[in-house]
Write a protein that binds this DNA or RNA. Structure first.
Lengths: 264, 264
DNA sequence: TAGTGGTCTAGACCACCCC
DNA sequence: GGGTGGTCTAGACCACTAA
């Protein structure tokens, strides 16, 4: 049933058996055991063996399955927890991370109110359509120019004040049945919808931020004067295997909010 | 000489951990041992027992000093390394982090060129003076309004193109002998100067980012049109013990650069 | 060759959660 | 009470660095 840690690609000369951990063959270790275990666990997450929100097997159980010590599994899970792929809960177990949580809402949204506590935004869909990917979108999503994409435009308001205008592009192949109706009837963070309905979980993103002048159309949507300076955020989100699955371009009004960042 | 961890004190044979079968005293463990060790090591860093760039004692040595196992010291140092307070180098030892390094230059500066590789900025000092802290500056630096601060204004250029206008406020008490001459003759990152000359090492910072219109004066310094939208970054930097020691307000031109961020 | 951090194991006990 | 993750220890071996 259980295979010992398999892979990897590059042929290495040094055959460093890592202590006698079962198995007749010396099981050439090209990377630390716990890294290989981490990879195996990630595969199970990706394949859907354990779904977002679910409990994964205990450390002891995984140690038995992979024929390694609990400490090695522990180190693998430590890293997965640091990357937010799983969440540990003492006394209960380790759970697959999900975007269906209060705290998940602000995981990728760094816009904070200058005063007071963060509020959940209300979302108003402006447009949803399928289209062929423009060249720049295709490049960032690693698609071929002209491939089908889903385009979404919406406005988000905090406490009734429109603050964000957002455009999204999603690979049409993955997000087949995504319609305006479906979007509007869904409550909660959009990443939660993607996760539950389309089996695509965002685990990481990169953002490029610039200052721009707002155009007339977007100024109307936000109820501000044309030419007002806004933050422009270009975000590319990735799922398992560093696969890009979302391009999101947002315009943030920073009159009463700011983009918050921690530097370490 | 060396103090042992503040609370539980094994001393019986070879450290029975927190088991304490013999000692009936409930051994009030307020935090895990490795956290306490981490605190003790941080104290030594703060006190200057080991200076930036220097080698700290080996794990075995620290384990002996603190009367704990090597594994416990290891976990403490793991966290310190994750927080960038120290750097591990296999086969060599563990070193105190320093801002005198190529990679340190971009640790707190997230402005990246849209194309090509990052270049080191050239700095031009516009003004240096001592003054009384305005109310807002005093608040952010945790000073009393009217306390002495050092004020610095400078322009930074990438490959000859002025891109950043920056104002800094530093507590006058700490940065006593900081003059324009001293700043100008110093090559390298300003945080390196602070570290070497004033014994103040920045270890963490928070940033608030907004979009603003550039005023006339700053527009001239950057050689751009007035009203151009710019990124405004308000950064508060902290040293050991979460003590705020720098307020920095920067205006970033995002014509050929962007603020880069990774979301996890 | 000696010394350092890096990996792996095994076993013990603790803190927490839920039945 | 029994299971889970969290801490701590002890000892072994590996990979890297430098003298």
């Amino acid at each position: 049933m259980n295979s010992v840690p398999p892979n990897n690609n590059p042929a290495s000369t040094t055959a460093s058996g890592s202590a006698g951990s079962a198995s007749a063959a010396p099981s050439p270790t090209f990377s630390p055991l716990y890294q290989q275990i981490k990879g195996l666990i990630t595969q199970s997450l990706q394949s859907g063996e354990w779904k977002p929100g679910e409990l994964i097997p205990s450390e002891v159980e995984l140690a038995n399955r992979f024929k390694v010590s609990q400490g090695t599994v522990r180190k693998a899970i430590d890293e997965l927890a640091a990357e937010n792929l799983v969440m540990r809960k003492q006394g209960k177990g380790t759970f697959v991370s999900t975007h269906h949580e209060a705290r998940a809402h602000f995981r990728f949204l760094r816009l904070m109110p200058d005063e007071g506590v963060p509020h959940y935004p209300d979302s108003k869909i402006i447009e949803v359509k399928r289209m062929r990917a423009p060249a720049d979108v295709a490049r960032l999503l690693e698609l071929k120019s002209g491939d089908a994409v889903v385009y979404i435009k919406r406005v988000q308001a905090f406490e009734g004040v429109p603050t964000i205008v957002e455009e999204l592009w999603l690979p049409g192949m993955i997000f087949k049945g995504l319609t305006a109706e479906r979007l509007m009837e869904y409550k909660g963070p959009m990443y939660g919808l993607f996760e539950s309905e389309f089996g695509t979980r965002m685990i990481r993103a990169t953002e490029k931020i610039r200052a721009v002048s707002v155009g007339e159309e977007d100024a109307k949507l936000l109820g501000i004067a044309a030419q007002t300076p806004l933050l422009e955020s270009e975000r590319v989100s990735f799922t398992y295997g560093d696969k890009a699955v979302e391009l999101r371009r947002g315009l943030y009004s920073t009159a009463r909010h700011h983009y918050h960042n921690e530097l370490n």
